[in-house]
Simulated assay, not measured.
Amino acid sequence: MSLSDRTICGHCNLKCANGGILDKLRCECKCVEGYRGSDCSKPPCNPKDCVNGSLDKTTCACKCLPNWHGPKCDCDLACKNGGTLDGARCQCMCSGGHRGQDCSKPPCKTSCISGKVNQETCACECEKGWSGPSCDCSLKCANGGTVDGAQCDCTCVGGFRGLDCSKPPCQTKCINGKVNQDNCACVCTEGWSGSSCECSLQCKNGGKLDGDACQCSCVDGYKGSDCSKPPCKTACVNGKVNQETCACECTAGWSGPKCDCSLKCANGGSLQKDTCRCTCIGGYRGTDCKTSPCTTVCVNGKVNQTNCSCECTEGWTGPKCGEYRICHYQGPSFYVCEHAHGSMRADVDSDMIV
């Protein structure tokens, strides 16, 4: 405070604080007990404020010892890698990207796409709406889902699904399994299959299961609902094998157990498929019943349908079995037979007629 500031019209206007004594002639305060300033308003200096140095009582400033800095000489920080010290704040001003209290940490190599690098941790501090280690994730999770920035995916709640939890909950019911939340399909427990995991059918011998239909598709001739029945050994000459019954299903015009019979029975005859023979009616004859009926009349016998001749009853003979014969015993080795047209002698041992 200048003298002109302390006087008004030649009179001293100065007031001394903290017990200071006014010298009216000089218009100055003589301070006591260490108080300072033109009006003794500044508090005394505290020697303890200089931790590593000495106190200038006039200015109350510390004069620091070598390698110590700061207002209280309490900063011994040494800045590395070209950093400069701000002694008043005891802080290093680092350069070249170096970091840390003494600039000893190497520069961060983090690349932040939508944000800035925290030089202390080298982590990204993302702009609003971005997340992830590189601030490259702008995913927004719907329906109460939360974003995992590190993985850039959503953790959905309430059954909602999809990348951003926008897909509605699955309505699938899995009887023996669990629901795949990506496609709402069932993931069945081992041993179960089908759209609802309701099928426990196991296909054997290489068969393939259609889980939705719960049916086996058998291979290599195996059959049955689970392909456990062995292949049929039936040989069908003109047809195919019914895999359920192993019987032949013949092509049109063929019959028989092996479809090897093409016989046609005429004139109302019926075919015996097992033997491939015709059973003729109405007197028709022959392999296919095409031969006309015999007209032969056998008086005492029956007609041979093969050659239309008579087969006579015992004691009768002749083309129509109309002649009889009576044989009489005439001694050792001889019989005399009488026919309707004469008699003859038969040698029994030689079967010769004499």
Rank of each mutant, 00 (worst) to 15 (best):
E125L: 15
S196K: 14
E311I: 15
N180Q: 06
Y222R: 00
G20M: 04
P66A: 11
C124R: 01
P66K: 10
L3R: 11
P43Y: 09
K116E: 12
T279I: 11
Q119C: 03
L139W: 01
H339Q: 10
S111Q: 15
D23A: 13
D102R: 13
G194S: 04
E338L: 08
T58G: 14
G177V: 02
A142W: 00
K240G: 11
V179Q: 05
E314V: 13
L163C: 02
D136I: 03
T306M: 06
C152H: 00
C45D: 07
P71F: 07
D210S: 12
K24Y: 10
N13D: 12
K48V: 12
S38W: 11
N52T: 08
G87H: 01
D210K: 03
C310V: 07
C50V: 06
H98T: 03
K290F: 13
C184I: 07
G191V: 03
C259F: 06
G145Y: 01
L201P: 04
C248H: 03
S225F: 08
P332G: 13
A266I: 02
E314Q: 13
K116S: 13
P66Q: 11
A340M: 04
R99G: 06
D347N: 13
G97R: 09
V147I: 14
E33D: 15
G129E: 09
G10F: 06
C73P: 06
D39Y: 11
K42W: 01
G96W: 05
T306D: 15
A142K: 13
C184K: 07
S41Y: 07
K167I: 02
N267M: 10
P43T: 09
A346G: 05
C174F: 02
V117Q: 00
K302H: 09
C248F: 01
G129I: 06
K320S: 14
C124A: 03
R99N: 06
H69E: 12
N81G: 06
Y335M: 13
G37E: 04
T291L: 12
S262V: 01
C40V: 07
D76E: 09
S54Q: 10
D76Y: 08
C216T: 01
P106D: 06
G34L: 06
F334P: 00
L263T: 08
C199H: 00
R285N: 01
V297C: 04
K229R: 14
R99I: 04
T172S: 13
G144H: 07
L65R: 14
Q181W: 05
C261V: 04
D86I: 10
S114R: 14
E314D: 14
